[in-house]
Amino acid sequence: MNPEHRRIAAKYLADKWRWKPLEYVFWLAALAAVWLLPSHHLILNEIMITGLFAMSLDLILGYAGIASLGHAAFFGLGAYTAGIFAIRVTGDPLLGLALAGFASAGLGFVTSFLVLRGVDLARLMVTLGVALVLGEIANQLTWLTGGADGLQGVTIAPILGKFEFDIFGRTAYVYSLIVSFLLFLIARRLVISPFGLSLRTIRDNPLRASAIGTPVDRRLIAIYTVAAAYAGIAGALLAQTTQFVSLDVIALHRSADVLLMLVIGGTGYLYGGFVGALIFKGLQDVISSWTPQYWTFWIGLILVILVLIGRDRMNLAVATGLARLRGKPAPRPRTIVGDR
């Protein structure tokens, strides 16, 4: 790499590294919700956890191009680890969170070697298989996991011995928000780096990536392990804030839903998972309180419309609107955050 290229790459990363206004808006809004939406903390907590889970999928799908139908395996392992740890060892939430992250990272590391073999379709099958196997293990180990009845008797101690989990879900939401934000910062650092760029190269053309000397396998193993840890922590958050774990943390529908949310929100810019979770869960909450039986129809319809219009075009419309407000010329057709 000659100095000129180095300079261009450094400038590119520095540009990316700068926080965009919309990013501030997003996190400040999430923080403001602690005071402004006191009656919605429970759903917000669920959205935040699901968003974190979706972001972990974004790390492998959006950045490394690994499509997975079994990401709930890590989410579920994290949830069960945190739940069982709370019952058998101690109810301290932060320790449980860390342990869940390590457990899922371990599983992610081991199974990443399976994912390296084969491409898209084979990967879908392999990841799906891992989740199914884990689900059946959880079903069979009744003495440990409670089997089909679910894991009961999870009691979580106050965070740092001070903040008790309340019935309004306030502590739960603040806890999930802080954990998600910290993990987001790390993920942001990770993807806006030479490492992150090399992942994108692999996503776009693995053959060329290896031709220019990128250690493709090692990079994929690394990001898969990190994503697994993230998913595990998301699962642990769910287990701790609901104080219950059942087999559906690991079920296929959870893997499928999170993929769907990521598709709604958009891949490859980290916020897609959060945005998708917000849209999906928010719509589900609003529409299903109008029509508990037929809300899936409306969600489906909205998805179809979303696909027909195309997210890029919608983003462009928003960006154009914003630009007009500021009196600047309309931007070029590209997404407003990220560069996909």
Partner: peptide, 8 residues
């Protein structure tokens, strides 16, 4: 039919 949703 999902337990954590029921609880929430």
């Amino acid at each position: 039919g999902v337990a954590d949703v029921t609880r929430r």
